[in-house]
Structure formats: structure tokens, C-alpha cells
Simulated scan of single mutants.
Amino acid sequence: MMQLIKSNFIERSSVIFCDVLADMAFHDFPIVLPQGSALSSTIISLEQELLESSQRHSQEQLQRRLHPRFAEVGASGRVYDREAIIAQLAREPARDAGALKVESPVALQLSDQLVLLRWKLLAGSPSERSSLWIHEQGRWQLLFHQGTAAAHPQPSAGPEEAVHADGEFTVRRLRLSDAEAVFEAFSSNPDMLRQGDADSPQKAESYVRALLEAGERQQAMAVAYRDRLVGLVCGTVDPANRNAWVWYWMNQNYRGRSLATRAVATLVDYLFDELGLYRLELGLRANNPGSKHVAESNGFLHEGVERGKFLVAGERIDVHTYARLRTDGGSAVMPLPWGTQQ
């Protein structure tokens, strides 16, 4: 009788033990979560929410979504903690709903509490993104995020369809030998006609020569890819008042990668730190959101509107004026590095 009870107990214990193992749901992590699964959809939805302006500009929402130990490594290589990224996003220009979107997401479950989401951001400067989400105290929070500029083919002055690495873009002094590349830039888009008179090789050489012969008054810097000019940033200096008028342009084939934004940051640091200027000014057309992004990202503050200043294709366009003082706060933009030969 005792033997029968013992036998039944052992058999039932084995069944119970196996059931417990099954309930504990041991997995061979990592697991690629199927598209459309509940967990994958939840993480992707949370990531998308963080791309919306209403979330990005809300300190309360960001504190809820970002883990207290959150860290981010930006595309520039700069590291941010939770407080720094919240402060940066507060200064970010507002975007239309849905302007940014999580593309090609792949969710990888690393444990019961961790999910890694790999995805792409195609708006603006295309980038590869990685987000690590952790489940604590009944909710998912973003623990770590990293963005890396995506390598992708684009037209260039060098080999066709070359893949450009951001590390190969620098800022250096303008040279007379840049005239050919200036002509190429002015030929890249009809809107370049508003930047000056350089629509022929001869005019481009005269354009460059005039900037160089102006000496210290024109602080003209080439935005260069592998030392070849693809854009220009310049500060026209008013030495009597220690001010400068900042202006910039990019070859059409190199726009949309934040190169102008980062090159202006390099120029701003030079004008403030090396030349000791106090006030920097710039103006931009009301219908030029790209230029507005360059200005505001670099800490320039809106000071006024010059109504109907420019006549473009028969339409009067307002001009927005911006300025930044040496005493104003800085910006979170990572400047482009100086070339080996400034």
C-alpha cells in the first residue's frame, strides 16, 4: 500500500515539476519577435510616441518614458543622460504630427524584461537606430538609445554613387582652387542663384577671389568632403562693433545630412572663441524651414520679421531675423571637425 502511494506521489510530483518548468517559460534568448506580436507592437508604438512633438516637448511624458538611468549616444558620438536629452528636446523645433516615423523595425527580446529594437529613421539625415527597453514597476521604459548616420549612396563630385562616411566631412579655409566646386554647387539647384553670381566657371572664380581678397572681413570656410568643397559657411565681420553676419549654403547633392548645421556650429565657435566677437546675426526666408532648423539648432534666437523683403517669383517673402550673443546659452550641435589644413 505504501509502495503504491509512494509510486503515485513520485509520478504526480514529476508531472507537477514538469508543469512548473513549463509555466516558468524558459527561453533560448535572444528571440526575434514576430511582426505584429503583442510585445513587438507595444515596443514599436512606444518608440513612435517618442518621435511625436507632443511627447518630445513634454518633460512629464519624457520623465515617464525614459528610465532614470537612461543614456543616449547621438550620431555625433556625444553622450547624453536623461536630464541632458530632456533639455535638448525642449529646444527642438516643433514638427508636424507623423513627420518622423519608425521604419523597418526589428524587435529582439533579450530577456523577460529587456527588448532591443533596431530601426531606421529616414527623415532628415537617414540614420540607423537602436533602442533598449526595460520593463520595471509594471511599465516599459527606454534605458538606452543610439543613433548612427546611415551610409547611403548619393551623387558627388567624386566617383558616382560613392558611399560617404560622416567622418570624412570637415571644415577648412576657402581656397581659390575651390572655384570649380563652387561652380558645381551653384549649378546643383536653381535656388543657388540667390546666393550670389557664380553660374559660370569664370564667375565662380571671381566669387571665390572676392571672398579671399576681403581678408579678415570675410571668414569664409569650406564644408569639405575628402577635402573637396560641397558647401560654404561664412561670417561677414563688423570689426567696429565686434559683430558678424552669418550665412551659408550647400550643394544640393549634400543637403539633408545636417552638414550645414554642424558647419555653422564650427563657425560659431571660431567667431566667438578665436575672434572674440559678441553678436552673430543671420536672416532667412519665411519659406525656408531647412535654414530655420540650422539657425535654431545652433542657439540663434528669433528677433523679428522683415515683412515682404524679398521678391521671389513674383511673390513677396518675409525674412526672419535671428541673433546669438556670446552670453547666450550654447547648443547641443556637434561641430564638424577642422580639416588638417585650415
Rank of each mutant, 00 (worst) to 15 (best):
Leu122Met: 15
Ser200Arg: 12
Ser177Pro: 02
Arg56His: 01
Arg326Phe: 07
Val319Thr: 10
Ser104Trp: 10
Phe310Lys: 09
His302Trp: 13
Gly299Cys: 04
Ser54Asn: 13
Ser45Ala: 11
Arg324Cys: 04
Gly158Val: 01
Asp197Gly: 02
Gln252Val: 00
Ala22Pro: 00
Gly36Ala: 09
Ala99Leu: 07
Phe144Gln: 11
Val333Lys: 13
Ala210Pro: 04
Asp23Glu: 14
Ile43His: 03
Asn298Lys: 11
Ala222Gly: 01
Leu51His: 15
Leu212Asp: 08
Gln61Val: 01
Asp273His: 03
Val264Leu: 09
Trp119Ile: 00
Arg226Ser: 06
Ser40Val: 00
Ser104Ile: 02
Gln341Phe: 03
Met192Gln: 15
Leu280Val: 06
Glu168Phe: 06
Tyr248Ala: 11
Trp247Leu: 13
His320Ile: 12
His145Val: 00
Asp112Ser: 14
Ser14Asn: 09
Asp199Glu: 10
Ser297Lys: 14
Ile86Asp: 00
Arg226Val: 02
Trp247Glu: 13
Arg69Lys: 12
Pro335Ala: 07
Asn243Tyr: 05
Arg65Lys: 08
Asn243Gln: 11
Ile16Thr: 12
Leu275Gly: 07
Leu116Tyr: 06
Glu216Ala: 11
Ile317Tyr: 02
Leu100Gly: 08
Asp238Gln: 07
Thr170Glu: 13
Tyr225Asp: 06
His27Met: 13
Gly235Arg: 09
Phe9Lys: 10
Gln88Glu: 12
Ala332His: 15
Gly314Ile: 03
Ser177Asn: 06
His293Gln: 05
Val246Ala: 01
Ala151Arg: 15
Arg324His: 05
Arg175Trp: 12
Gln113Leu: 11
Pro337Asn: 01
Ser14Asp: 11
Lys309Ala: 08
Tyr254Gly: 06
Asn189Leu: 10
Glu72Gly: 00
Leu142Glu: 05
Leu301Glu: 12
Ala185Met: 07
Ala244Leu: 11
Val79Glu: 10
Ala244Asn: 14
Leu33Ser: 08
Ser40Thr: 08
Ala295Cys: 06
Ala22Ser: 09
His135Tyr: 13
Arg91Glu: 13
Leu232Phe: 07
Ser125His: 12
His320Asn: 09
His152Val: 01
Cys18Tyr: 15
Arg69Phe: 00
Leu116Ala: 09
Gln35Lys: 15
Gly77Met: 02
Ser41Val: 00
Gly231Ala: 02
Arg228Cys: 03
Arg226Glu: 12
Phe9Pro: 00
Leu122Gln: 14
Met250Cys: 04
Ser258Arg: 13
Thr236His: 15
Trp249His: 11
Ile86Cys: 00
Val237Phe: 07
Gln154Tyr: 00
Ile31Gln: 11
Gly167Thr: 08
Trp338Gln: 03
Leu110Met: 12
Glu49Cys: 07
Pro201Met: 01
Ala99Met: 12
Phe9Ser: 01
Ser187Phe: 01
Met192Val: 02
Arg285Gln: 11
Thr321Glu: 06
Glu303Ile: 02
Ser187Gly: 01
Val102His: 09
Val319Cys: 09
Ile134Glu: 08
Val163Lys: 10
Leu143Lys: 08
Ser13Cys: 08
Glu213Asn: 15
Gly167Asn: 11
Tyr248Met: 02
Ala25Lys: 15
Arg175Phe: 12
Leu277Thr: 08
Ala260Gly: 10
Met192Phe: 03
Ser156Phe: 08
Gly215Thr: 07
Asp178Arg: 14
Glu274Ser: 13
Asn251Lys: 02
Leu277Glu: 03
Leu174Val: 04
Gln137Trp: 04
Asp112Cys: 05
Val237Thr: 07
Phe17Ser: 14
Lys6Asn: 10
